[in-house]
Write a protein that binds this DNA or RNA. Structure first.
Lengths: 192, 192
DNA sequence: ATGAAGTGTCAACAACTGTTGGCATACGGT
DNA sequence: ACCGTATGCCAACAGTTGTTGACACTTCAT
């Protein structure tokens, strides 16, 4: 798996990476439209034309920068009653350190392609996870959607809109409040 | 209160209203950046320069178009155990018919001013409502924030990202699932 | 009828955008 | 040492954007 690469690392790889890093920051902070190629190139200390050469277009750059994996943990070892709690903790930890999702959310608000990508991420990755539990298959889609609604609402209020109470609460407070919600969406029944 | 206006209605009022209607539609559908003044003016069948004359600037137009009131109902008559259910029903009904909030959410993702406005709406209007119940005042801010996180997550997944399960669920299904969540955020305790 | 204010159109501006092609330099295998 | 290729910068393009000012027509009180 991890053999020596057949082609030696090129000198431009560093530039490529610098562009990608700057792009993620700008996209996360300003969204797709306001993040200009010129600003990204300036952050990466290279010429705007290099961005085009390496990523083809702004859309290509965004596609490369918005690669995002929820990295859902293996939940088969978790006691079924603690699934919600575990999920919230995972998401909070996953997002505090990676601004890719903020970029994706900011852009998904106005860019159909990014919205499609968010749909894919949460339908596929979350849907697959929910389906792994023995729920009625007819409800797994809805359960995944509901989990996504609370998770994305958490992300939206805490990282995008920055609603003060949601920003100030500690991760453990959020786990204590939001965990039971996800738990009910995952294993509970409609109507409580 | 509702006397005859001291100044008779001007002829331009119709134009003003047409601009505002077109602006709300465009802002809701495309967000602040992608909604151009030229497109809005074309929708309203007037010249772009009229927009400037009547609203000063694009920001001024947005400020006028993004006026939004949650119109929270009087909840003092509602049985305390049905608060969550009532709230979800109200929000769904409030949003299906008014695209202003979609415009606000789309724009809040990238525009600091719009984000500030969303913060104000949900902190003030929701906070005031939550505070009206006899909870520990120390928790009212957090409770309002949590309610906002689930409500905005619902709006974000159903109206912005259009996550299929969230779009397909009927209002009553959503009430049955999300209602208990709000109920717990409002009157329950952390940790369930 | 007259003049001022209201209402609208047209053309243009300056700034900024993504994108392109040409040209210089540095690298790496021969 | 040589040459093709990789890497980088510069200048410019065509299109779009918010915004402005000049000019024409209408309304309406005097």
């Amino acid at each position: 798996m991890t053999e020596a690469p057949p082609t030696p690392p090129r000198r431009s790889d560093a530039t490529r990476a610098a562009i990608l890093r700057a792009a993620r920051e700008r996209f996360a902070a300003e969204g797709y439209d306001r993040a200009t190629i010129r600003a990204i190139a300036a952050d990466a200390r290279i010429d705007p034309s290099m961005v085009m050469r390496y990523y083809g277009s702004k859309e290509g750059l965004f596609a490369a920068a918005a690669e995002f994996d929820l990295r859902l943990p293996d939940l088969t070892e978790v006691p079924p009653a603690r699934l919600g709690e575990t999920l919230v903790r995972h998401f909070l930890h996953r997002w505090e350190g990676d601004e890719t999702l903020a970029a994706l959310l900011r852009t998904a608000s106005t860019n159909p392609g990014a919205a499609e990508r968010v749909r894919g991420i949460f339908a596929d990755q979350l849907g697959a996870m929910v389906g792994r539990f023995g729920n009625d298959p007819a409800t797994t889609g809805k359960r995944a959607g509901l989990v996504a609604s609370q998770i994305l609402g958490l992300a939206f209020t805490r990282y995008i809109v920055r609603l003060p109470p949601m920003v100030d609460m500690t991760p453990e407070e959020l786990v204590a409040w939001v965990g039971p919600t996800l738990q009910r969406y995952l294993t509970g029944r409609s109507g409580d």
